[in-house]
Design a protein around this nucleic acid. Structure first.
Lengths: 255, 255
DNA sequence: CGTCCTATTGATGGGGTTCAAGGCGTGTGG
DNA sequence: CCACACGCCTTGAACCCCATCAATAGGACG
């Protein structure tokens, strides 16, 4: 397992940890997700998991590492649409749509799990709450997409960078891969640029600024959030779009 | 019914017309959607259909007019996340989530339809293809969101505007509210600006440029696309993200 | 017939891109 | 073991796209 995954919850796969943030599904039901037959595959940085236009047949889950949904313009510019973390669903559309309209790539060393549609459908029949839990995860991703749109359309480079760091941190906390203020950001500044719709150079300058203003501390790929309140204030961050229930938010705060 | 909706398909509601673009559901099944008990409401431009943080109880469909999902930054800037047209679902998340993380507003005079969750669930039990059809519509919206992200992150104002016009035109064709090259764009330049992450003034200049270069013709709110190939080439438009099946694309081309 | 909303145009300035170059760490092959 | 290459980070300088400020014109409406 790769270094950035050492903080994982040993009792369950990240998938269960992730979905346990949805209060309406029981941990027993969720644990059944790990009993479905599957195949796993290891990927390296840059590997294409699903290409644009590829037909989709299996449900794919992230087990470890970071991946991304990306699109390219004809001019060769790249936009990262969404970052996928352990526990995330890569091919939710498999139930309704034949082909992917975007590309899924591995950003770090990753492990992904392939589950056949019918096996999952069988499980849903036995434990309908699981279907809802996956649907919740899908809705959460869409909330993040909406937030991403606001970030790209109406925030400055400075605000965007703050916002991204806070959001990733929060998502990592949800899967127990970050402490209160520290997390590993295993992607390059060029990839951050493609996420935020900026140039690599400007991302660099912005990170320098965040450091010089004492908002974050950075040691290589390790980020420490020094002043979360100030940062949240700068970029207008709130976590409503993650759709956590009240009780869950409270529980997270205790950690 | 408001002026911009005169080109509707009289046989079915826009909802059925819209979903009939999904090949796997039969027209008979789709027509049953109109038999579900409902309540309708008229809205005027600016009306808030669902506020941020409001609890969601019913499934809401667009019947006529244009609406939008919007978010505001603390600084008062506005970002339009998605345009909703007749036949679109406004509150898909109702099955999993309690509160809306964004605001739904009416952009024109609109008619919206409220359907109770349980009535829809009952119908799904009788006609499971309908559930899939609605899921397809949701997936199509997410495809449009992904495209929107690319547009905001990696395209110039000129490309963005081209792209938006082509996309709206295509979506209107799908619900029989546009001819081959003409459609009504019933929103202000300020609203286009909030969609594209630009200033009103710059949207104006960009539209002037599109007109002066002979790409579009505009008479008040009526847009004619004069050179669709050139425009598609400029902004790298393709309609893969609308997830139409091959046969449907062919059918559209014949129209 | 003023008032308000929308579209339009000019002038100015700034946030972010682009071009260019150097530094640092790591791996690799002679 | 060193030389060199390569990926990533960093910094400087010039430029440009688009925002902002300011002002006018054209309806629609009471």
């Amino acid at each position: 397992m790769s270094p950035q995954n050492e903080i994982t919850d040993v009792a369950y796969t990240p998938l269960v940890t992730r979905l346990s943030n949805y209060a309406r599904a029981s941990k027993q039901d969720l644990a059944r997700l790990d009993t479905v037959p599957f195949q796993q595959r290891k990927c390296e940085p840059g590997d294409i998991i699903v290409g644009r236009g590829d037909s989709i047949t299996d449900v794919i889950f992230m087990i470890s590492g970071w991946a991304a949904r990306v699109r390219y313009t004809k001019g060769g510019r790249r936009q990262i649409i969404h970052i996928l973390l352990p526990g995330d669903l890569l091919t939710r559309e498999v139930f309704v749509i034949r082909r992917s309209d975007h590309e899924l790539i591995s950003l770090t060393n990753t492990v992904i799990r392939f589950v056949e549609q019918k096996d999952l459908v069988d499980l849903f029949r036995e434990a309908p709450d699981l279907s809802t839990a996956l649907w919740w995860a899908a809705e959460q991703e869409e909330g993040i997409l909406r937030e991403h749109i606001v970030r790209l359309g109406r925030r400055s480079s400075y605000e965007r960078t703050c916002h991204l760091l806070l959001e990733l941190h929060r998502r990592l906390v949800l899967i127990r891969q970050a402490t209160e203020s520290v997390f590993v950001l295993p992607i390059t500044q060029a990839e951050i640029a493609d996420l935020l719709g900026l140039s690599t150079i400007h991302v660099n300058r912005t990170l320098v600024k965040l450091r010089s203003e004492g908002l974050i501390k950075q040691n290589k790929r390790i980020i420490q959030i020094l002043d979360p309140e100030a940062m949240a204030d700068i970029c207008d961050f709130d976590l409503a779009h993650l759709h956590l229930d009240g009780e869950d938010v409270d529980r997270l705060m205790e950690d």
